[in-house]
Nucleic acid binder design. Structure first.
Length: 485
RNA sequence: GCGGAAUUAGUCUAGCUCGGUAUGACGUCAGCUUCCCAAGUUGAAGGUCGUGGGUUCAAAUCCCGCAUUCCGCACCA
């Protein structure tokens, strides 16, 4: 199914919808999760915790969304996260100043240079608008961070443009109190904020969005000293360097030197295993090895985890080897010590980052799971049972003869443990269809036989097949079928 | 941010050319019916037609601004 089908499902079934939609001054790039969306998101994150955080023995924190100016001076976001832009006086088109100047005059001005340098170059080389030959206004800086004023004096602070800065600044304390040893993983889930010029496509480019970030602190001289590598050495990952992506085991990726070391390969491996369990079609995924020009300003080596969807390849995760960029700049700015002991040697750890876009991941799960079952005239969200917003529908076959009461009783029994949905109204087939559309893997139906022998029928979403089971077995059957893998 | 198109109920949509406060479908709710896959039947709720202004006796309809959405461009750690 395509983007529009997913959008329709999201709007009709409460996965997500535009923020503040009753007001006409609602801004672009802000979306809300409805009940189904939140339920999916929570379950997705539980899977993430199981497959990455607990599996690797990482620690999770929850930092502030507003952070002080110094943090972003040290991180480089105040300098590098801002682009010098020039605007044409005549046609109002906006361009990147540094790129436009270098294309037309071959003059290379670093993007962090003083704004006057750009204006000078434009005058000297008589640079005009590439579109309409008009003159440019003075160069301005466009920073993607949202500035906020703290307290009555409105002191300068920023909404974080990525969650990981708290992890870096908290690292010295966390390493001490959690009795840290390298490699040391810290994770965080939360919102980040970027003032995108043009937000697009609902969850795919937001101004306020969720990230699940992992920063693994490591000793740069021991990147091939990874015991856990054997766990994933035969896991198949798909890597693209410059041509088509091709599949290889993690072991082969190391031997061919496509992935620089076992440490990075280990995390690419467990990340792939995680995404496989979300139900995303892993044969439509790739780790794209980024070239020099594409990499972020802090990255030494970078792999983007991308998945193919009906609107093209989507970047779901950025995996960056950030070296000691972050810790050394925070150390310098804060005068705090960030070195730690590893095997009796003092080291400033390097960082490998796994920065996941949650919203995009959820969209991709929905798109890859949504099917049009033409034979049975239904839309089915064939999502993994443990990720489904609703685990089980509880239905009375008809309302009369005490079936409604018996149904309510069974619903009460299970609703605290499972995400159950009670439904008495309308034809039974219609109720099954509704459950199919939000991905409920099971429906149990209470009929006249239930009153006689305490059995119910259980219907499976994908096969539509039904079995009769004892009410006393219900709990264990559901528990087993809905368990995380 | 630039250019183009669009915006009518939960969703899709008719009406706009040629001005007279809105059509249909699906969905939703309640009843009847119904012992298993969107059936039938009787009712009901839900829209100041994105928003602000203008023209007019009268605007969903004509004109202008803005917002949002989609498509391109640009941007995108």
């Amino acid at each position: 199914m395509n983007y529009e089908d997913v959008m329709k499902l999201a709007l009709e079934r409460g996965f997500y919808f535009p923020s503040c939609e009753v007001y006409s001054d609602a801004q672009a790039g802000f979306w809300e999760y409805g009940p189904s969306g939140v339920s999916l998101k929570n379950k997705f994150l539980e899977l993430w915790r199981r497959e990455l955080i607990r599996r690797d023995g990482m620690f999770e924190i929850d930092g502030s969304q507003i952070m002080s100016k110094s943090v972003f001076e040290a991180s480089g976001h105040l300098g590098s996260f801002a682009d010098p832009i020039i605007k044409c006086k005549k046609c109002k088109s906006t361009f990147r100043a540094d790129r436009t100047i270098s294309e037309i005059s071959n003059m290379e001005i670093p993007e962090s240079a003083d704004l006057i340098e750009f204006d000078k170059a434009i005058l000297q080389s008589n640079i005009k608008c590439p579109k309409c030959k008009g003159d440019f206004e003075n160069t301005k800086k466009f920073n993607m961070m949202f500035r906020v004023g703290i307290g009555p004096e409105e002191e300068e602070a920023y909404l974080r443009p990525e969650t990981c800065q708290s992890i870096f600044v908290d690292f010295p304390r966390l390493f001490k109190i959690m009795r840290g040893k390298l490699p040391f993983g810290i994770a965080q889930v939360g919102k980040s904020f970027r003032n995108e010029i043009s937000p697009r496509q609902s969850l795919l480019r937001l101004r306020e969005f969720y990230q699940a970030e992992i920063e693994v602190f490591c000793n740069p001289s021991r990147l091939n000293d990874v015991e856990k590598f054997s766990e994933i050495q035969n896991t198949i990952i798909r890597i693209q360097t410059d041509s088509e992506p091709f599949a290889m085991t993690c072991k082969e990726a190391i031997e061919s030197e496509i992935v620089p070391n076992k440490f990075v390969a280990y995390y690419l491996g467990i990340l792939t295993e995680f995404y496989e369990k979300t139900g995303i079609d892993i044969t439509k995924s790739r780790f794209r090895k980024l070239g020099e020009k594409e990499k972020a300003f802090y990255a030494e080596a970078a792999f983007d985890f991308e998945v193919e969807t009906t609107i093209g390849w989507l970047e779901l995760v950025a995996c960056n080897y950030r070296s000691d960029y972050d810790l050394s700049s925070h150390a310098e700015k804060s005068k705090e010590k960030f070195e730690v002991m590893d095997n009796d040697k003092k080291v400033l750890p390097h960082v490998f980052e796994i920065s996941m876009g949650i919203d995009r991941s959820l969209y991709t799960i929905l798109e890859h799971s949504l099917n049009d079952d033409k034979e049975h005239e239904r839309i089915v969200l064939s999502i993994k049972p443990y990720l489904s917003p609703i685990h089980v529908g509880v239905l009375s076959l008809i309302k009369k003869d005490g079936l409604k009461e018996k149904t309510d009783e069974i619903y009460l029994q299970i609703k605290r443990k499972f995400d159950a949905f009670l439904d008495h109204s309308g034809a039974i087939g219609r109720r099954y269809r509704r459950l199919d559309e939000i991905g409920a893997p099971f429906a149990i139906t209470i009929d006249h036989e239930t009153l006689k022998d305490d059995t119910v029928t259980i219907r499976k979403r994908d096969s539509m097949e039904q079995n009769r089971i004892k009410i006393s077995e219900l709990d264990s059957i559901l528990t087993e079928s809905l368990a995380y893998p």
